[in-house]
């Protein structure tokens, strides 16, 4: 089943968000617009807007208000992707050339900053100060997480808590905040938006762990980028950390460098797959997922709750 089937009752509103995203990136500069559109049309799950809309259903739902938060969060995610591709010197994103590959680093930087500005402009339509305090705090944490990721590259003596803090900042917080801001923008009670934040956080942690597993178990075609990219770039993910419990495998892993050949990387991937690291990673992902489902137990039973539950389960089982 496709993810979007799970929330088909939001179809009209999702289409509205998609149209609004195209409006948001319109610019006096044709190149900025073209580059932004290039990224927008590469697709993506739009999981953040979906969480915003679903969470907003717990309050006084008005698509004309809520769409500003939904569009803003997707644009912020897009801006971070454009910048990340410069950071990672990435050629492909979702199987298409990145902005920096299609044009160059400078165009990517201008486009990323432009999209970020548009995200903020959209967000300022939400006139709830708390929403801005939460989102801005998250953005700062996100940056700190990215900086820490650079700092931790090829650092093989790190611990599980380093990894968890990193993925919290890198992925989980923005999903958590998407859920919370949806609820805040529709005036849902504090107890509900805090619960939704926890739900989003746990789903986000589970999601990122699975992403990190797939980096080692999927094909280049499925990923839209070379398999093992994280490992190659020195990002120590959960399966890699677990695999290092096996001394012979650790010996192979710690030799990975930027200069390693594709064959060497493939050999390390196979060594990791030969341990129980993938299985243990799935188990931790499932623990976060279970916590997310527990969070939902505290929310009123309705169609939205069922949908959030289905999305969480879908994420737990996704294969690419």
């Amino acid at each position: 089943m496709k993810l979007n089937r799970l929330y088909s009752f939001l179809k009209a509103d999702i289409e509205e968000i998609e149209k609004e995203l195209e409006v948001a990136i319109q610019s006096d500069s044709s190149l900025l617009q073209e580059a932004s559109l290039h990224l927008l049309q590469a697709g993506g799950k739009r999981i953040r807007p979906v969480f915003v809309l679903l969470s907003a259903k717990y309050g006084d739902y008005d698509i004309n208000v809520v769409k500003h938060a939904a569009v803003s969060l997707e644009l912020m995610h897009m801006a971070s992707l454009v910048h990340d591709d410069v950071i990672d010197d990435a050629e492909l994103r979702r199987g298409k050339p990145t902005i920096k590959a299609q044009w160059d680093n400078r165009v990517a930087m201008y486009t990323g900053d432009y999209i970020f500005a548009r995200a903020l402009e959209y967000m300022t339509h939400i006139r709830v100060p708390e929403a801005h305090r939460i989102l801005s705090h998250t953005l700062v944490e996100l940056c700190k997480g990215e900086i820490a990721q650079i700092q931790d590259k090829y650092r093989y003596d790190q611990h599980l808590r380093d990894y968890l803090l990193r993925i919290k900042r890198k992925t989980a917080l923005l999903i958590a905040v998407s859920c919370q801001l949806g609820a805040i923008s529709s005036g849902a009670p504090e107890e509900v938006h805090k619960r939704l934040f926890n739900f989003g956080y746990n789903v986000g942690m589970s999601y990122q762990i699975i992403d990190d597993i797939l980096d080692l178990t999927s094909t280049e075609k499925e990923l839209g980028k070379p398999a093992g990219s994280d490992l190659w770039q020195g990002n120590i993910t959960l399966p890699v950390l677990y695999a290092m419990d096996v001394p012979e495998v650790k010996g192979k892993i710690i030799r990975v460098r930027e200069e390693s050949s594709p064959e060497e990387i493939q050999s390390v991937i196979e060594a990791i797959r030969g341990t129980d690291a993938i299985e243990r990673s799935y188990a931790l992902s499932k623990r976060y997922l279970d916590r997310a489902l527990e969070d939902l137990d505290h929310l009123p039973a309705n169609k939205v709750k069922r949908t959030l539950k289905n999305i969480a389960n879908y994420i737990g089982k996704r294969k690419y």
């Binding site: 970020f116 953005l139 996100l142 700190k144 900086i147």
Partner: peptide, 8 residues
């Protein structure tokens, strides 16, 4: 990242 950090 520094640029993104300062703007955040």
């Amino acid at each position: 990242l520094a640029g993104v950090y300062f703007s955040s």
